[in-house]
């Protein structure tokens, strides 16, 4: 574990994500329903932050707001030093290009090979000349070099998820957002995936925000944020989190600490 505190690794480092008094509503008029209440939060480079909470607590909503996939209306939301509140659709698309997304499902094009799926992300940077090399390079980093020219149909679940991760990482984003990245994977594959993400956070100094219910991987977190009913309930190190939650839901034996 590189850090067990919620403080930034270096006190001077600027935050990758700065959330201030963020509220969010679904629906309009009488059907308007508040799902996020006055969230304030900072995420720093090099941190792996796990967000937990019961379903319906607003985790995914917060994740999609930070990922510029929805437009925020109230409060302030700065991602990679850009204020997202009030941005138009086109500007949000630009922001998204600097964020790596990992989804619960791999969402790979069945018609493209692993390398081509990764290249789709590289093409966003305009790098057509080196896209193949870049894709193969990242695939070999995650141990899939020899599978580069296989289509998803010929890959195992874990391999597909790793290709999806390669797609998220290939442009070396400063921020990675992951939604249940291990949910569809068995224990070993899931562990491989989070180890890989851990390395990235350490080596490239990027910020990783992960929503997960998977207790097996809580140990990789530098911080654990708990969201309940749209409010930030706790923000703690994994040990503190485990201590305060063990009696309720978590099994200490799940952790490899």
């Amino acid at each position: 574990m590189s850090s067990t505190s919620t403080a930034p690794p270096s006190s001077m480092a600027p935050s990758s994500v700065q959330v201030r008094n963020l509220s969010y509503f679904f629906g309009k008029g009488d059907l308007r329903k508040q799902v996020l209440f006055d969230i304030s939060l900072d995420l720093f480079p090099g941190q792996i932050v796990i967000m937990t909470g019961p379903s319906g607590s607003g985790k995914t909503t917060l994740l999609t707001l930070i990922g510029a996939l929805r437009s925020a209306h109230e409060g302030s939301l700065q991602v990679l030093n850009k204020e997202l509140v009030g941005l138009g659709n086109r500007q949000l698309v630009e922001i998204r290009r600097n964020i790596g997304f990992i989804f619960q499902a791999h969402n790979l094009f069945e018609s493209l090979t692993a390398a081509q799926n990764v290249e789709m992300a590289v093409e966003l940077t305009g790098n057509f000349r080196g896209k193949r090399a870049q894709a193969v390079d990242i695939l070999s980093q995650i141990g899939l070099a020899e599978r580069a020219d296989y289509k998803p149909g010929a890959l195992s679940g874990g391999q597909k998820q790793r290709v999806a991760i390669a797609r998220a990482l290939v442009n070396q984003p400063q921020l990675i957002l992951a939604d249940e990245p291990t949910a569809a994977l068995d224990k070993q594959s899931g562990r491989d995936v989070v180890t890989l993400m851990q390395h990235l956070a350490e080596e490239k100094g990027c910020t990783i925000l992960m929503v997960t219910h998977d207790n097996r991987i809580l140990d990789v977190a530098d911080r654990i944020i708990n969201l309940v009913d749209g409010r930030l309930e706790s923000d703690a190190s994994p040990q503190q989190f485990v201590d305060s939650h063990t009696t309720k839901a978590l099994d200490q034996k799940m952790f490899i600490m």
Binding site: R97, F109, S111, L112, E123, L124, G126, F128
Partner: peptide, 24 residues
């Protein structure tokens, strides 16, 4: 990052449309 215009015809985009059609 702005997308640049394709400079070399030998380095095209992945023809996603064609691959999608061809897949099934």
């Amino acid at each position: 990052m702005k997308r640049r215009r394709l400079k070399f015809p030998s380095l095209p985009r992945i023809p996603l449309a064609w691959y999608n059609l061809r897949h099934d």
